[in-house]
Computed example of a mutant assay.
Amino acid sequence: MQNFLIILFWLGIALVVYTYVGYGVVIGVLVKLKNALKPEAPLPPLTDFPTVAFVIAAYNEEDYIRDKVANSLKLDYPADKLDIIFVTDGSSDQTPHILREYEAQGIRVLHEDARRGKIHAMHRAMGFVEADIAIFSDANTDLNPEALQEIVKHYQNPKVGAVAGEKRIKVLEKDAANGAGEGIYWKYESWLKKMDSAFYSVVGAAGELFSVRTKLYEQVPANALLDDFMLSMRIAQKGYRVKYEPQAQAWETPSSSVKEEFKRKIRICAGGIQSILWLLPLLNIFKYGWLSFQYVSHRVLRWTLTPLSLLAVFTLNVWLALFQLPFYQVMLGLQVLFYLTALLGWWLQTKKIKLKALFVPYYFVVMNLSVFLGFFRFIKGQQSVAWEKAARRKE
């Protein structure tokens, strides 16, 4: 019995370490091997710019919308090849009225009073798109001027079906645990996506900035919680590569509080469970090969087995400590210390006290707890597809 518990304990540890550290090591090594054996040829400079529809879905964004329009108009792309479309379905504030002030400058505004969720708004907007490439962005993000050119250069390769940009968090010295934790998390995520892209394909794009070949756009179900993820994975499932471009950047402020970030994470995790069920064929490594390996390692484990492993490892450690095994008693003490550190991070955050050493354990615990709450929310059918924005820190 004791030996069996020890085996389970170390299997759980191995799974957690692989998910958050090991996969990064493995994919990094695979990229180096690939580059050594068959380096990918650099893309030639763009000479013939494809037509682009820049689509922004905005729901009650009156605090950000003028900045977004100004940022969009400054993007470095041939004006005769660029169609800027704002879709504001369900907005009940001044967002649609503010946008109409800019129609004379070439902005297209699509508005409906009904609020049926972001994915419905995107589907409706795509009915007006005639461009070769559709690029999507959120209303509360700022893009660097060369973002569109950096994205579309990848479509010179006919095997590329979608391109994701890089999400960046504007973290200030004064930011609390949510800001710093979110920033660190996205830096690591960005590096993983860069490695995924270099090896074979990114497994899922973030809605802050991603693009597709218009002819490959597929209407995902209206109840999709992670529409951007589903859309990009469906394209990868068809055999196209999803590339990652770190020089196309979408900057946004972090969530205004851990409570707001927690709300966002729960929604993402509920959508992750839904996506796994809808994308079950992608678990077949014999059919999808490296795509399945990347998908399971980078996404599926985080949304399923790894959070369960954290719970199992702690429970098993308690049992093993009761056998009076000194090593496992020390391990239990370290685990308790880690979770107390996260709890202390939460308490300090409520007191507006900064201690960056606690940001990572705090954010790690919040992220994994979100999986459990997201799972129960999905099972109960309590997660709405209507826009549920996390409040962002004001500049």
Score class of each variant (00 low, 15 high):
19 T>V: 05
284 N>Y: 12
62 E>M: 13
165 G>I: 06
32 K>W: 09
347 W>R: 07
344 L>Y: 09
242 V>I: 14
139 A>C: 09
102 Y>H: 06
201 S>Q: 10
343 L>D: 05
285 I>K: 11
247 Q>M: 08
321 A>G: 10
230 M>E: 15
44 P>Y: 02
212 V>L: 00
91 S>N: 01
95 T>G: 07
113 D>A: 13
276 I>G: 04
154 H>Y: 14
147 A>P: 06
25 V>S: 11
304 T>P: 09
97 H>R: 14
319 W>R: 05
318 V>I: 13
104 A>T: 06
260 E>K: 12
174 K>D: 10
209 L>T: 05
128 F>C: 00
303 W>D: 04
125 A>L: 11
34 K>V: 11
196 D>R: 09
267 R>V: 11
372 F>K: 04
323 F>K: 14
272 G>F: 07
52 V>D: 00
221 P>G: 03
332 L>Q: 11
337 L>A: 12
348 L>Y: 10
221 P>Y: 10
83 D>G: 04
21 V>C: 07
46 L>I: 15
37 L>M: 11
14 A>K: 06
309 S>C: 15
336 V>W: 12
289 G>K: 13
265 K>F: 06
148 L>C: 02
92 S>W: 07
275 S>G: 04
177 A>V: 05
340 L>P: 07
48 D>Y: 03
64 Y>D: 09
184 I>L: 13
164 A>R: 04
75 L>W: 05
12 G>R: 10
334 L>D: 01
195 M>A: 11
389 K>G: 01
177 A>P: 00
97 H>P: 00
336 V>S: 07
275 S>P: 00
52 V>W: 01
72 S>L: 14
269 C>G: 00
352 K>E: 00
174 K>W: 03
316 L>D: 02
139 A>Y: 08
334 L>Q: 02
276 I>Q: 02
141 T>G: 02
8 L>W: 15
311 L>S: 11
345 G>V: 06
272 G>L: 13
100 R>N: 02
122 M>S: 00
372 F>M: 05
247 Q>S: 13
211 S>W: 10
285 I>F: 13
174 K>N: 09
102 Y>F: 10
364 F>T: 02
93 D>E: 09
